[in-house]
């Protein structure tokens, strides 16, 4: 392999690695949007809280895998509580007001985390991040490999869940039309609660992965903003879309960073948003979203 080709391939692989992290973040967003039509602006904070809890557990001496499991459980419970206290009273209110409530929630959670966990930079003590996998000169770290595996697994799981399970069908029904779903005897409230629980659990997993590759502090919740383009790119309602969106954004970002940063400094961080804008111009419902076309 020539050096140029190797460089390109390595960039693509690194991009997929980062993309799988974005995909994990995007997944939680999409899940909530799919079932409840809400863009959850507190998703980044849910990630952060999950990462902090897991950190606290690992520091307390609980083995990493157990800590992750316990964190997922706590996050799920936390999601249920959030839904009950904050979002349930908002059922039937305009979508925009509900989105705003999640913004309020994000401000609240961020400060509370600052109070409880402190503002210092923490280093996640896990077994994942140290080793790397080297194959013919191409490098991939185990953290990213796990992120990729888990994203893949999630897609399959959710595909099966939405296709075959009763609850999954109920969720799809609610997403499609709340009133009709209610008439069909589906408990919309329960579906909402469950969605938030699952979404928070996924957020926690994403947060743990991010904490492994970055420094764990309050600022980690800002990564969620970087995942927005991935969500929209794939289409707000599509779970495979979220994964593909995440991967596309990750790869493009890394490639742009690898080739264009010299000529256009800082363009790497802009890539996602430009791609998003262009995609929306051509397909206003994302790559895999529900087609609701506006004609003017």
């Amino acid at each position: 392999m020539t050096e140029g080709a190797l460089y390109f391939l390595q960039l693509v692989i690194s991009g997929i690695a980062v993309g799988s992290l974005y995909a994990l973040v995007a997944l939680g967003f999409v899940l909530i949007y799919k079932a409840t039509d809400i863009m959850n602006f507190a998703h980044g904070e849910a990630m952060m809280v999950g990462a902090f809890i897991c950190y606290a557990l690992v520091v307390a001496g609980i083995p990493f895998l157990w800590a992750v499991l316990i964190t997922t459980g706590i996050a799920m419970f936390f999601g249920l509580v959030t839904e009950r206290l904050v979002l349930r009273p908002m059922i039937g209110e305009p979508q925009f007001a509900v989105v705003m409530v999640t913004i309020g929630l994000s401000i609240f959670l961020r400060s509370i985390s600052g109070i409880i966990f402190g503002h210092d930079n923490k280093i996640f003590p896990s077994q994942l991040s140290d080793q790397t996998l080297v194959f013919k000169g191409l490098v991939l770290s185990y953290t990213h490999l796990w992120a990729m595996l888990i994203s893949g697994l999630m897609v399959i799981l959710f595909f099966l869940f939405f296709r075959y399970s009763r609850v999954g069908l109920a969720m799809r029904g609610v997403a499609n039309d709340q009133d009709t779903a209610m008439l069909m005897g589906i408990s919309v409230k329960r579906v909402f609660a469950l969605t938030w629980g699952i979404s928070f659990a996924i957020a926690a997993v994403a947060g743990i992965f991010l904490a492994n590759v970055m420094v764990l502090n309050i600022a980690i919740c800002l990564v969620a903003i970087k995942a927005f383009p991935a969500v929209i790119l794939g289409g707000l309602e599509s779970i495979p879309g979220a994964i593909i969106g995440g991967l596309v954004i990750g790869v493009l970002e890394t490639l742009v960073g690898g080739y264009l940063d010299q000529t256009l400094p800082g363009v790497k961080d802009l890539t996602a948003f430009v791609v998003l804008f262009l995609v929306l111009m051509i397909r206003p419902y994302g790559l895999f979203g529900k087609k609701e076309i506006e004609r003017v």
């Binding site: 690194s14 992290l21 970055m214 690898g258």
Partner: peptide, 21 residues
């Protein structure tokens, strides 16, 4: 080379690979 690594970056792969190259 002169490369940008912004605060809040999730990953520095592209910068590292470019430097390494």
């Amino acid at each position: 080379s002169e490369l940008v690594l912004n605060i809040g970056s999730v990953d520095a792969s592209s910068q590292i690979l470019s430097l390494k190259k």
